[in-house]
C-alpha cells in the first residue's frame, strides 16, 4: 500500500551489518585503551590473585573446628569476582564509554549519518559481550589452573553460569545507558560510574560474606542485582554446606533471576527515555 505511493523503495542501511561493524570497531578501540584493560578486563583476575596471595592457598575458609570441609581463599572469592565482572563490564565500562561519546561529539557525529541508533547499541552490546566473555573465561582459567579451584561438572551448572552472566550484564548495561544522562561532563561521568561499583561491591557479598552485613544494609542491597548475582554464582561454585552461611540458608537463585529480569526491563525503559538520538541539549 505504501509501496505504491513511493516510486522506488527508499534506501535503508542494514541495522545488523552496521551493528556488527560497530562491534568490531568498538572491540578494537577497547583493546587500544590500556587503562580500561587494566581497570575493567583484568581487574577481577588481579583481585582474585591478590586474595590468593594475601590469604594463602590453605583450605581454611569455612572449615569446621576440626579443620575439615574448608576451601581455599581463591575458591571462596571466585563467585564474587565473577559477579564483580558483570558490574564492571555492564555498568562501569559501558557508562563511561557512552558518557564520553555523548560529550566528545561521537554520538552527535554518528546521529548525523544514516547509522541507525540500534546499530550503535549493537556495537556497544558486542563490546560488552566481548568483555564479559573474555573476563569470565580468563577468571575461570586462572582459577582452575593457577589456583586449582574445582570446577562444576554438570552442564546444567554451566548453563546457569552463562545465563547469569548474560542477564546480569544486560541488567547493568541498560542501567548504564540511562545513567549517562546524569553527569554533566565526561570527567564526572567516569568518576560517578565508580561510585555504585564501589558501594555495591563492598555490600553485596563480593568481598565479605553477605550474611555478616547488618540486616538494614542487607535489605538495601537486596534491591540491587549484584548481591543476587553473587549469591547465585556461589550456589554453583561453593560446596553445598556453604548454603548455611546465606541469609535464610538459601542462595536465592530463583529470586536472582526475578530481580535481574526486573532490572533489565526497568533499565531498558529508563535507557529509552534518557538516551536521545540525535542528542539534545
Amino acid at each position: 500500500m505504501t509501496a505504491l505511493s513511493s516510486p522506488a523503495t527508499p534506501w535503508k542501511p542494514s541495522v545488523l551489518r552496521l551493528g556488527l561493524h560497530r562491534a568490531a570497531l568498538e572491540i578494537k578501540l577497547f583493546n587500544r585503551d590500556v587503562l580500561s584493560l587494566v581497570l575493567v578486563l583484568f581487574f577481577p583476575i588481579l583481585m582474585l590473585s591478590l586474595f590468593g596471595t594475601v590469604f594463602g592457598d590453605e583450605p581454611v575458609f569455612g572449615a569446621d573446628p576440626s579443620g575439615q570441609g574448608g576451601i581455599t581463599p581463591a575458591h571462596y572469592y571466585l563467585p564474587g569476582m565473577l559477579a564483580l565482572s558483570t558490574i564492571l563490564s555492564g555498568f562501569q565500562n559501558l557508562s563511561s564509554y557512552v558518557a564520553t561519546e555523548r560529550f566528545n561529539g561521537t554520538v552527535k557525529r554518528l546521529a548525523g549519518t544514516p547509522l541507525p541508533a540500534a546499530s550503535y547499541f549493537l556495537g556497544k552490546t558486542g563490546q560488552t559481550l566481548y568483555l564479559i566473555v573474555a573476563q569470565t573465561a580468563l577468571l575461570l582459567l586462572a582459577a582452575r589452573f593457577l589456583f586449582n579451584v574445582p570446577m562444576p561438572d554438570e552442564p546444567g551448572q554451566w548453563a546457569l553460569v552463562a545465563g547469569l552472566m548474560v542477564l546480569s550484564t544486560a541488567a547493568w548495561a541498560t542501567v548504564a545507558i540511562a545513567f549517562t544522562a546524569l553527569p554533566k561532563s565526561a570527567q564526572s561521568a567516569s568518576t560517578l560510574a565508580v561510585l555504585p561499583v564501589l558501594l555495591l561491591s563492598f555490600t553485596s557479598g563480593v568481598y565479605f560474606p553477605f550474611s555478616q552485613l547488618p540486616d538494614w544494609l542487607q535489605s538495601v542491597t537486596n534491591f540491587f542485582p549484584l548481591r543476587w548475582t553473587a549469591g547465585a554464582f556461589r550456589s554453583v561454585f561453593l560446596p553445598p554446606q556453604f548454603a548455611a552461611a546465606e541469609p535464610g540458608g538459601s542462595y536465592g537463585v530463583g529470586t536472582a533471576f526475578v530481580v535481574l529480569a526486573v532490572w533489565v526491563v526497568a533499565g531498558a525503559v529508563l535507557a529509552r527515555l534518557a538516551f536521545k538520538w540525535p542528542p539534545q541539549k
Binding site: P10, W11, K12, P13, R109, G112, T113, P114, L115, P116
Partner: peptide, 10 residues
C-alpha cells in the same frame, strides 16, 4: 529517515 541523512554532510 536514513535515506535523507545519506544526502547531507555535517
Amino acid at each position: 529517515a536514513p535515506a535523507f541523512r545519506a544526502r547531507i554532510g555535517i
